[in-house]
Design a protein around this nucleic acid. Structure first.
Lengths: 218, 218
DNA sequence: TGAATAAATTAGACTAGACTAAAATATGGA
DNA sequence: TCCATATTTTAGTCTAGTCTAATTTATTCA
């Protein structure tokens, strides 16, 4: 059994590794809003349990066991998000905090039955893939909106950053999973781009925003 | 915000007070499988927060605020039990432990939406009443099966003790909420009674069992 | 290369929540 | 009333998890 804090650290490592680069002590601390010294202690504990390898100044690598645990956390988180949106009528931008709590209820039978009940969904309301009971993830061929060119026609497939601020901004502009866009123009000066949703007026998106939108070709 | 341990203590007090008598430090410790000295500390903390009054050797009394908190815990517990049985297909005798975890996810919006989603049920799968969002409880006129007489026709309305052992025994005998019974005979010697379910053969129940079955007249 | 900087760890303190053992306090029967 | 017993509290210890401050270790750039 992992404690809540151990689970939080494991998930942070997993998320940082996914976002590319390496997971350094300070990165983990920043993400969990704690101090590096606290993270040092926890990494030692997780390494002792065989969930990860830690090389100072280089980063953390998950073992197969650690990755498995992390994937189960992600699975539970995304299944609950799906439940909250699909069944309880929550907005996709208001489910993160509650799912953060529900994900720590560890009971395989519960998780599997919830999965069945929801129809074994492959993706959550943010468009992120939901690992199956064995931790397998369905792939999708998407790219960041920020790397698209003028004239590209795309559909929003996922949002890779789930802060309240970004989610609300997207909501205000009518951008959600499935929304289709045409890229009108890209401004190399600041990386901003003008886009036009299928059913709406054109507007501009900063690079900070377009960087976090995963899109698939239409 | 209450911590998990504070919530557990509050719930233990509430449950003990319901079961009649008073809630003594040692009773709470016994129920939570901790020591009396630990309970002393926690009662002090809860008293400081205005959730209860404690008079040594006499017992604990909940304040209105404390009772309100306890009722919200009970509400969440029973709503989740209902969800697990009604929607996820769990047996009514296997949901207690999971609900014990889910009840600590405190989010009013989640609770209220779950309530709506389940159709605002008045009673959980064990037949226990579910407090509404204001903590109000629907009453029912039931009595213990153990006080019934020969010839009484009753329906099982609730099980007042939810240990795995009892629940499994009931399950094995085909006794569940809603099952109708005729009391054939009561043996004053040991308090056991012979009963016959509506659709089944007669058998005998010990007083330990009949004491925990709440029934309503048919 | 070596000094400045960034990252990480160590040392030590603190809190919450549990424990044991001992002391204090109340109860109840003779 | 008074003693034996049950209950409760107190005092002190322990662990998990966090923190700050100080120190160590690595990296980088002039």
């Amino acid at each position: 059994m992992l404690t809540r804090s151990e689970e939080d650290h494991l998930k942070a490592v997993y998320a940082l590794l996914l976002e590319g680069e390496s997971a350094l002590t300070k990165d983990i601390a920043q993400r969990l809003r704690t101090k590096a010294s606290s993270v040092t202690d926890m990494l030692k504990k997780l390494a002792d349990k065989g969930l990860l390898k830690h090389e100072p100044y280089y980063g953390v690598k998950l073992t197969a066991k650690g990755r498995g645990h992390a994937l189960q956390l992600v699975r539970r988180h995304r299944l609950w998000e799906t439940f909250l949106v699909q069944r309880l009528g929550f907005g996709w931008d208001e489910v993160h905090d509650v799912a953060e709590q529900l994900e720590h209820v560890a009971d395989d039978k519960l998780t599997d039955r919830l999965d069945d009940y929801l129809g074994k969904p492959g993706f959550d309301p943010h468009g992120d893939p939901i690992p199956d009971r064995k931790g397998r993830i369905r792939e999708r061929k998407t790219q960041r909106l920020s790397v698209c060119q003028a004239q590209d026609c795309v559909r929003i497939a996922a949002v890779s950053e789930t802060t309240d601020g970004l989610l609300r901004l997207l909501d205000a502009k009518g951008l959600r999973i499935g929304t289709q866009l045409v890229v009108l123009e890209v401004h190399p000066f600041d990386g901003s781009m003008d886009v036009k949703p299928k059913n709406g007026a054109a507007f501009s998106l900063s690079k900070d925003v377009s960087h976090h939108l995963q899109v698939e070709p239409v």
